[in-house]
Design a protein around this nucleic acid. Structure first.
Lengths: 327, 327
DNA sequence: TAACCGTTGTCTATCATATGTCAAGGGAAA
DNA sequence: TTTCCCTTGACATATGATAGACAACGGTTA
C-alpha cells in the first residue's frame, strides 16, 4: 500500500508502525545480529524500538524496512555512522542508486526431444532391460524437455498404465515393476524437491490413506501442486487419518489431498475419508485423487470430498483455491 | 465462517466452537505438549477451553486453529507472551506475512553446523517442524559436505535411530516419521542417481525380502555400493525371492544384497534367504544387511549368507569383491 | 615510518525476564 | 484398575538487557 503523505490517515497508526517484533525475529529477518542491532541503536540511534513491560525491544515493520536497507547499504561500503541520520526515503534512493548491478538472465535454449510417445517407449524399453540408469536418464530428460504437466500426463501416467497392464498380463516381471517403481519414485521425488519453495505459498498436504501403499499417484499430485507454486508437505503412503489431520493443522494447510489407487475395502476407505472430512477445519477442502477416485465417486458421494478426475482437473482446482486464498 | 461448497449442509456454523476435544488430541494435533498447553493457558490466557463436569479441558476446533497458528508464529520468533492477546484474524495475517518473509533477502547464506552432530540435530529439528524443504536442504548439504560414507554413517543412521526411538517413545508423531521417511528416501534416491554409472562396473542387486517394507536400509546399502563404484540395480522393498534371483541373473550381478529391519516371522525370512541362496549362482555372494541383520546372525547361521554388520563392513566387502572380480 | 585515533563489528560478564519442563498428590474417565 | 488429567509450585533453560572491552581497519599526525 502506498502512502504518499497526502492521504495519510491521521488516526490510524498504520499497521507498519505497530511495534510487535522482538529482536530475534528482526535479527533473522534483517540479517543483522542482535548485538549489532543494539550497538547501532546505542551509538547512532538508528531506530528507537518501543519497549515491552519487561523492557524488551519491540520493533515495527517500518523499523525492519529501515534496518534492511541499512544493512544492504553498509554491505556496499557506506558507513553506518553517516547513514544513521538519513530518512527511509533517502536510504531507498541511495539503495537503488548503488544497486545498479545488472542481472542478465540467460535465454534457455530449447533442445527438441522426441515425442511423448517415443519417450514413453524408451522408458518401457529401459524397464524391460532392468536398466535403471537409462530409465532414470530418459525420465529426467523428459521432465526438463516437456515440462512437468506434459511429463506427468504424457509420460508418467502412460508408462505406469502400460507397466500395470503388462503386470497383469504377465509380460512384465515383478522385478521390472519394482525397478520401474523405484526409479519413477526417485525422479518424482527429485522433481518435488526441485519445485519446493519455502516462501509465501498456499500449503497442500499430500498422503495416501491407510491401507493404500502405492504412492506414485500421491507423488504425481504432489509434484503437480509444487509445480503450480504450492508448498507441498508430502507424507507418503499409508498415513492414519488422525495424523493426516494433525499434519494439516500444524502446517496450516489450505488444502489436503489423498490418493487412492485401488479399493480394497470400500467401507474402511469411506470411513477414513469421512473421519478426515469431519476433523479437518471446514474451510480446508479435502481432495481425492488417484486411479480409483472416479470409481469411488460413482459408488457413493462422500459429503465434502472433492473428487479429482485428472491432473488437469487438479491443476485447475489448485489455481482456483490459490486465488481464493490470496484474495 | 465461510462455506465454499465443500461442506455438507449438515454442518452448523458454530460447529467449530463446540467444545469436544480433550487435551491429548489437541496436543498431537497442534504439536504442542499438554504441559505447554496448560502453561500457556495459565500464564497468558491463550485460550479458555470449557471444562467437562469433572473439570477436564474441552477444546473447540477454533481453539485448535488458534493454537496451531500460535505455535507456528512462536517458532518463527514471535514471543508467546505478546501473541496471546491477539485475535485469530490478526494471527492469521501475521502468519501469512511472516511466512512471506521467513527468509531474509539476499542475506549471505550462513554456513553453520559443520559437525555431524549439528547436522543431525538440524535434521531432527526440521523433522519435528514438518519442514520438508529444510530437512531436504540440510541433508543435501550434509551429503556434499561430508561425503557419502560419513553422511550415511554419521547423519542418516543416527537421525533414523533417533526418529525410531522417538517414535516408540511417542515423542515423534506418525506424520513426522512419514515425512522424514519420504525425504530421506528422496535424498538417498537422488544420491543413488548421482552415482549411477552405466560403464563396466561390478553389479549389485539390492532389495528387501518379502514382508520387509522398510526400505531405507536397502537404500543406504545401494548408495554405499554406488559410491564405491558399483553399478546398482535397486529393486525396492518387498521383492519375492524368485524375482530377486531372476533380476540378479538378468543383470549379471556379481553380488546380491538384501536388507532387513525387523524380524516379523523368523522362519519365513530364513526360508526366503535359503531359497535365494539355493537359486543364485554359487559364485554370487548373498549379503544380508540392515538393522536386524546382526540379530539374525545370532539366531542362526544361514549357510552361504554373509551378514553385514555395518556400512563400513559392507564397503570393505564390496572392495574385496570388486578386486576379486577384476583379477 | 610509527604512533595515534575514530569507526565499527564482535565478544564477555552479569543480571533480569520469558518460557519450557517437571514433580507430587489428588481426582476423573475408560 | 489403569490411565489420563488437574493444580500448584518449583526448576531449568533460553533469551534479552546493559555495560564495557577488544580487535581490525583506515586515516591522520608526529
Amino acid at each position: 500500500m502506498i502512502d504518499n503523505g497526502y492521504l495519510a490517515p491521521v488516526n490510524q497508526p498504520s499497521d507498519i508502525q505497530i511495534p510487535r517484533y522482538p529482536v530475534r525475529l528482526v535479527a533473522t529477518r534483517t540479517g543483522l545480529s542482535a548485538h549489532v542491532l543494539r550497538a547501532w541503536e546505542r551509538r547512532y540511534g538508528v531506530v528507537t524500538p518501543t519497549r515491552s513491560e519487561g523492557g524488551q525491544r519491540l520493533y515495527s515493520q517500518l523499523d525492519i524496512e529501515r534496518l534492511s536497507r541499512l544493512r544492504r547499504l553498509t554491505e556496499r561500503g557506506h558507513g553506518i555512522g553517516r547513514l544513521a541520520s538519513l530518512g527511509l526515503d533517502q536510504l531507498t534512493s541511495l539503495d537503488e542508486e548503488s544497486a545498479a548491478e545488472a542481472t542478465p538472465d540467460p535465454a534457455p535454449a530449447r533442445s527438441p526431444g522426441g515425442s511423448v510417445g517415443d519417450i514413453t517407449a524408451a522408458a518401457l524399453r529401459a524397464t524391460r532391460r532392468l536398466d535403471a540408469v537409462e530409465l532414470q536418464a530418459v525420465l529426467e530428460r523428459a521432465a526438463v524437455t516437456l515440462g512437468v504437466p506434459d511429463f506427468l500426463d504424457g509420460v508418467v501416467a502412460t508408462a505406469l498404465n502400460e507397466i500395470g497392464r503388462g503386470w497383469t498380463e504377465r509380460s512384465v516381471s515383478v522385478a521390472q515393476e519394482h525397478l520401474a517403481t523405484a526409479v519413477f519414485r526417485r525422479v518424482l521425488g527429485w522433481l518435488l524437491g526441485v519445485y519446493q519453495v519455502n516462501g509465501p505459498a498456499p500449503r497442500l498436504v499430500v498422503a495416501t490413506p491407510p491401507g493404500q501403499v502405492h504412492e506414485l499417484g500421491a507423488l504425481m499430485v504432489a509434484v503437480s501442486a509444487a509445480a503450480e507454486g504450492w508448498g507441498v508437505t508430502y507424507l507418503g503412503p499409508d498415513l492414519p487419518v488422525a495424523d493426516l489431520v494433525s499434519a494439516a493443522t500444524q502446517t496450516g494447510a489450505r488444502a489436503v489431498a489423498v490418493s487412492v489407487v485401488y479399493v480394497p475395502d470400500d467401507r474402511a476407505l469411506a470411513a477414513a475419508l469421512q473421519e478426515a472430512r469431519a476433523n479437518l477445519p471446514s474451510q480446508v477442502p479435502l481432495l481425492l485423487g488417484g486411479a480409483a477416485a472416479p470409481a469411488i465417486r460413482l459408488e457413493r458421494e462422500i459429503a465434502g470430498v472433492m473428487v479429482i478426475d485428472s491432473l488437469a482437473d487438479l491443476r485447475a482446482l489448485l489455481r482456483r483455491l490459490g486465488e481464493e486464498g490470496a484474495a
